[in-house]
């Protein structure tokens, strides 16, 4: 069991957890993720690590409620625990001084882009960050991103905050205004990452995105997370999660991510109906585990 030292919503449906995981905290590098399982009957889902504190032995994750597992996870409070957390998994972001880097975060993707933006800044790059969200209340990590960026641009789809539009609009403006961009890092929903890739391809700007396909073990063993890169299968869990956006077959990525849509829908409907009893079960499991503690985690 992994203790939640702190949990709070930072936007509607988006929650930050500070989790006690000393081994992971010691090793985490920007771009890496954990796989977690909330309770005994739960599935394993990958979540990028926002940051870690090796001294305190904690990691932070930011989770958006989308399906059953993320809704259930976001129902957990400070003092509760998560059954399994394993990591840090995946390759770390490549951090080097290359000049001007545009870091783009779409929605909850901002939390995943943040550690890499910070590392790129520390490495001496000129970091221009573009943060986008559907509406004002969903803009997250504005202060943190400002701290690690030379420039911060914000867009909202509905114009309720900062500039109305998409993150790609901002990127296009930067390109059109003649800004010399050496690298674009984009993390967010697949349509956003694809739009970024399409935009930068013509301008031959190196573009890296972080993929989050369906995964189980996260160590290369199952091959479920395979993505087509230049027509060849690579595993997002060990070869990624970051890939050159111009080499990714996004059609296959979208198609594979939709593989279990019917089952996911059913799970979510069941969850909405049985939320209270499931939470009671999860709490009982936590308590039982708490009593058993003293053996292995």
């Amino acid at each position: 069991m992994f203790k939640i030292l702190h949990a709070e919503f930072i936007a509607p449906g988006i929650k930050r957890f500070v989790i006690q995981a000393p081994r992971i905290a010691r090793k985490q590098k920007p771009g890496q993720f954990v796989i977690l399982r909330v309770y005994e009957e739960g599935e394993r889902i990958p979540i990028t690590i926002e940051k870690s504190d090796p001294g305190q032995g904690t990691i932070n994750i930011v989770v958006q409620s989308i399906g059953k597992t993320t809704h259930l996870l976001n129902s957990l409070e400070t003092g509760e625990s998560i059954r399994d957390v394993v990591g840090p998994l995946g390759k770390a972001s490549e951090i080097e001084k290359i000049g001007t880097v545009v870091v783009m975060g779409g929605g909850v993707g901002t939390a995943m882009a943040y550690p890499t933006a910070a590392a790129l800044k520390r490495a001496g790059n000129h970091v221009i960050s573009i943060v986008g969200a559907r509406a004002k209340e969903l803009v997250i990590l504005e202060r943190e991103m400002r701290e690690v960026s030379n420039e911060l641009l914000i867009t909202t789809d509905d114009g309720s905050y900062a500039e109305k539009g998409f993150v790609t609009d901002k990127l296009r403006q930067l390109i059109d205004s003649g800004t010399q961009i050496d690298l674009v890092l984009a993390i967010g929903p697949i349509p956003m990452m694809r739009a970024v890739a399409d935009l930068t391809r013509g301008h031959k700007i190196r573009t890296v995105v972080s993929l989050n396909p369906i995964m189980i073990d996260g160590t290369g063993m199952c091959g479920g997370c395979r993505v087509l890169i230049d027509g060849k299968s690579e595993f997002a869990c060990v070869d990624g999660p970051e890939f050159d956006a111009h080499r990714i077959n996004f059609d296959v990525l979208i198609q594979r991510n939709a593989m279990y849509r019917a089952a996911e829908q059913k799970s979510f409907e069941d969850f909405q109906r049985e939320r209270e009893s499931l939470l009671a079960k999860v709490h009982a499991e936590q308590e039982a585990e708490c009593i058993l503690q003293g053996g292995e985690r």
């Binding site: 597992t69 189980i216 279990y260 069941d270």
Partner: peptide
């Protein structure tokens, strides 16, 4: 590996009692 892991480790054959689809 994936097929068997889903079924054996994750109990996908017991969906929806288990979450793995």
């Amino acid at each position: 590996n994936e097929f068997l892991t889903r079924i054996n480790l994750m109990h996908a054959y017991e969906f929806p009692r288990f979450d793995e689809p």
